Simulated assay, not measured.
Amino acid sequence: MVEEAMKSEESKIIDDAKVTGVRSNGEEDEQPEEGEIVGGEGDGDTISSSSSRPGTAVAQHPLEHSWTFWFDNPSARSKQDAWGSSLRSIYTFSTVEEFWSLYNNIHRPSKLAVGIDFYCFKNNIEPKWEDPVCANGGKWTVIFQKSKSDTCWLYTLLAMIGEQFDHGDDICGAVVNVRKSQEKISIWTKNAANESAQVSIGKQWKKVLDNNDTIGFIFHDDAMKDRNARNKYTV
């Protein structure tokens, strides 16, 4: 039942009829079934934005890092399941063209079901506190009114994959949490103890979002111990 619910929700995020997959060996994949996660075993598939017309090709602009979209629907998880058991990688992209091919065919946060978490993390980093890269990190968070985070989610993604942060190497990825009365966007980082790097990221993120409100940074260690953990840094 959990798997069926996951597939149903995933089909709402990505319009598979508009996205053509390319396997890691470069062979063009067939259209996936509705809700199917191509690649399996948690490895996000990589898509191609090359034109399907014979004799044409689209120039690719590589990103400094490859990035993976992840999807989690906690409501589909039974009470006995461990956190992260419903987390799935969706697609991995490594060029500007691949990003837009994906982004133009996925639902914005305002169109996602309540309870869903949608992530974009550097490839090979799982969006979990337990991931070795994330274990000593933390996160900046901005809270939005319901259905008001769409533009800021896009700006956050573009700033991350476009390497607009002075301390971009410290960034793991970002997540948007869709809840009943609000939406939250967070940027996860690697080294929470490096205050200067975290403050720099927070300040630059606020400029990207044109946000004048105070935002806070919480250590993952503190969040694991106390769901009401206090901010260690604010900007």
Rank of each mutant, 00 (worst) to 15 (best):
T189G: 03
N25T: 09
I14K: 01
I90W: 06
I161D: 00
P54D: 10
G138W: 01
E3M: 08
H107G: 15
S24H: 11
F93L: 07
Q80T: 15
V208H: 02
Q198Y: 05
T141K: 13
G26M: 05
S52F: 10
N25A: 10
M1T: 12
L112Y: 04
E36P: 02
T68C: 06
W153S: 02
E28I: 13
I171P: 00
K203P: 00
I185T: 00
D166E: 14
A223Y: 12
S200N: 07
V114L: 07
K128W: 05
Y103E: 07
V22D: 03
N105Q: 07
Q182I: 10
S196L: 12
L87G: 02
P132N: 05
T189A: 04
G40I: 03
T56F: 09
S147R: 14
K146T: 04
S24D: 12
W70S: 00
K111M: 13
K206C: 07
S110A: 10
K139A: 07
D150I: 01
N194K: 12
W205K: 00
K207A: 13
S66M: 05
A193M: 13
W100S: 03
K206Y: 00
N124E: 14
N211H: 09
K7I: 09
D150L: 03
E33T: 09
G115Y: 06
K190W: 06
I125P: 00
H65V: 06
A5N: 15
G173S: 05
D226G: 03
I143K: 12
N73A: 14
E4R: 12
R108N: 11
C172Y: 05
D131T: 05
R227I: 11
E27T: 14
W100H: 04
P127R: 01
F93N: 01
Q31P: 10
T20F: 11
E97I: 08
R77L: 15
N25K: 11
F144D: 02
E36S: 10
Y119A: 02
G44C: 03
P74W: 06
I215L: 10
